[in-house]
């Protein structure tokens, strides 16, 4: 469904700050895949997402959505196919607008016309959907989003993303800014939505045990490359120790990244 062919990304090309963030990435994402991505800081995980979503263009290589080459398609057009959630809960919603306004804006992708779609029928629908979050938000639809906690906002962003039913959902450490309790809650919700609604998703996390627990496929990135791509039975039986060992076998270097090792529990 989504295909990356030989993607490289070089920042500040030709300057002293030249930095190759992606080196020849090839990847096929199949429909229904729930891919988790791990890798040390600076491995290029976010850059990979930015390239897929079109925040910037790759230096070389092509990107295909459903066999259509979208490499030069502007970000807003590609967004029709994508749902994206960032680490910062503020990026998913408009703080100074009410919850129902936010839901209306995210209800349908693409150009917004001069129709007033937010009517009582629509509100009823939103209310029903909000109940799925079990946070009592359905009673606070006229409140500005800035009054809600980070966890509530991220849950809301997740719900709105799921409702627009994108072809691919990109989750970039979307629970990292939350307290452990909320992080666990959002992660469970994410898993439930992706499985129940048969969505396709890629999820970056720096928690190895989460990466192993969720999804049907795991990628490990290192210095701009995908060095491990494990799925199927092998993924199901994976342990953190097994993953570290596999990394060593591939790279013949110690997995020194403190963060990556420390974050498994």
């Amino acid at each position: 469904m989504i295909r990356l062919e030989n993607i490289t990304k070089v920042f500040n090309q030709g300057t002293v700050n030249e930095n190759t963030a992606l080196r020849g990435i090839n990847l096929r994402v199949k429909e229904g895949d729930f891919i988790t991505i791990v890798g040390s800081n600076g491995a290029g995980k976010t850059t990979l997402f930015n390239t897929i979503s079109g925040s910037f263009q790759p230096t070389t290589g092509d990107i295909f959505f459903n066999d259509k080459n979208v490499t030069r398609m502007p970000e807003y057009k590609r967004a029709q196919y994508l749902g994206r959630i960032f680490q910062d809960p503020l990026l998913g919603t408009a703080s100074n607008m009410s919850l129902e306004d936010n839901m209306m804006i995210c209800y349908k992708k693409g150009f917004k016309g001069l129709k007033i779609s937010l009517n009582s029928k629509m509100r009823e629908r939103f209310r029903e959907e909000l109940k799925a979050l079990d946070m009592g938000l359905e009673a606070r639809m006229e409140y500005n989003v800035q009054l809600f906690s980070g966890g509530q906002r991220q849950a809301l962003t997740l719900l709105m993303t799921v409702l627009s039913h994108p072809d691919l959902i990109l989750l970039d450490e979307h629970t990292a800014a939350l307290d452990p309790k909320n992080a666990a809650l959002i992660l469970e919700l994410t898993d439930k939505f992706i499985i129940d609604k048969k969505l396709t998703a890629m999820m970056i996390t720096h928690n190895m045990s989460h990466a192993i627990k969720y999804g049907n496929r795991i990628l490990m990135m290192h210095k701009g490359e995908i060095i491990l791509d494990i799925s199927g039975e092998e993924k199901k039986n994976l342990t953190v120790e097994g993953l570290v060992k596999k990394f060593y076998n591939v790279k013949h270097e110690e997995l020194t990244n403190d963060e990556l090792l420390m974050s498994h529990e």
Partner: peptide, 27 residues
């Protein structure tokens, strides 16, 4: 009336969060 339409709401979000508006497939 205008700011209650879908376009008006989107303009409202634009001043607050450009990324969100782009993510909704809006130019």
């Amino acid at each position: 009336l205008f700011f209650r339409t879908d376009m008006g709401l989107t303009l409202g979000a634009l001043g607050n969060n450009e990324q969100m508006v782009i993510s909704q497939g809006v130019n």
